[in-house]
Design a binder for these strands. Structure first.
Lengths: 218, 218
DNA sequence: GGCTGTGAAAAAGTTCACAGCT
DNA sequence: AGCTGTGAACTTTTTCACAGCC
């Protein structure tokens, strides 16, 4: 338990959390690695290995207590505290994010919506008033350790990112289709719509190739 | 070149493509692995290794021709053809996706927008008229090898997914916060907004821990 | 001299096989 | 008997070191 949780495991824990919540809502309070794995598209052994990095929270011969395991994963992920989120860019995507229920229910609290468009300032989106981007530095100062979510146009993304970093933010989730440059101490993750499509295209293409050539039985 | 391109490499090629396009727009037509790597947040050796799976498209002592490399990566990814895309669910997120320029410019063509909400049918979003979900099967039949993008509510995601699969789609990009069950031959990728946030929270939490305890020098 | 291409080594991640507990 | 937990084997991915070509 002591050492470090592998990066690959970290990326899967939220998926387990989601499946556990669903089970809990259905009144299930005990689950085997086999059942939990099948609802998260991983193999049971991988699931058990992942969970073993957190500790021994299952019961041999029985399974895992759904709520207890949920709590343990949440704790390991740092989700027992509430993380302030500042959402920048209130276009269609920003509005979708502002209204996304998955944030508040998972330890994230939107603290401010910021946009540069004066016609949007003061309008209410997802229960929050939109404020002007000029307030960025103040908002970040008021919310220590906040996470910045960037849903801004590609051409201003790096500039906004720089401001966010200078204001002291060390965790950024970027939706703009750009590779942002940040200092090493800043954690940056990106969600890229077209990249995922391109990866699908590759596999779709490969399917056609496989049906017309002899190669690649896998 | 012949064998298979590693999965990890496939996931990075679209990032290289994006950086190459940017360079091309700026009039740069020759680039070293060092420069290209720095604008994609990978190390030069990894970039060269990735490219080496496609073939030997660089020139030693010189670098890579931007347009030529762009073409070769596009070809390897199957992006020289146009992929039809059917977008299902025209809420805020669906509208953001429908208006996202990154699709058309990268070999993807939206063929239909579908939604269940009758008040939306006929409205035009991103240049496409919204059609009723009942047309799903017809639309899929008319667009062979199309990619389905699901931006539907969580509670109907699996049902829509099943319909899409039954209609013959073998590539799905899911934005709903659910783990979908699909047959093995169907490629499924997901984009999950809250999972990315949770991963950030983990690293943000770890930062605070590291400054207050002795553990984990890495 | 400079930069690519690539085997070989190292590291990370996954799967296996079974010990260990209830 | 049943299901977890985990060292060990295996596979994939990354990094290194340097040969090869312009």
């Amino acid at each position: 338990m002591a050492k470090g949780i592998p990066i690959a495991t970290i990326a899967r824990l939220p998926v387990y959390l989601r499946a556990l919540r669903l089970l809990s809502e259905r009144g299930v309070n005990l689950v085997s690695s086999e059942v939990l794995a099948s609802s998260t598209a991983v193999r049971p052994t991988k699931l058990r290995k992942d969970l073993s990095y957190l500790g021994s929270y299952g019961v041999r011969g029985v399974g895992y207590d759904v709520d207890y395991l949920t709590h343990q994963i949440s704790r390991a992920m740092g989700l027992t505290q509430n993380w302030p989120v500042v959402l920048i860019g209130i276009g269609n995507l920003g509005q979708a994010l502002a209204g996304y229920g998955g944030f508040s229910s998972r330890g994230f609290q939107i603290k401010a919506l910021l946009d540069a468009d004066h016609t949007k300032i003061g309008t209410v989106v997802g229960g929050h008033a939109v404020r002007h981007i000029s307030e960025l530095e103040r908002v970040v100062a008021e919310n220590s350790n906040c996470i910045a979510v960037l849903a801004v146009p590609e051409d201003v993304a790096q500039a906004i990112c720089d401001r966010v970093v200078n204001a002291g933010v060390t965790s950024i989730l970027n939706f703009a289709p750009t590779v942002l440059q940040v200092p090493a101490q800043v954690q940056l993750r990106k969600v890229d719509l077209s990249i995922e499509l391109q990866i699908l295209a590759f596999y779709e293409q490969r399917k056609s190739i496989n049906t017309t050539t002899l190669s690649n039985p896998a």
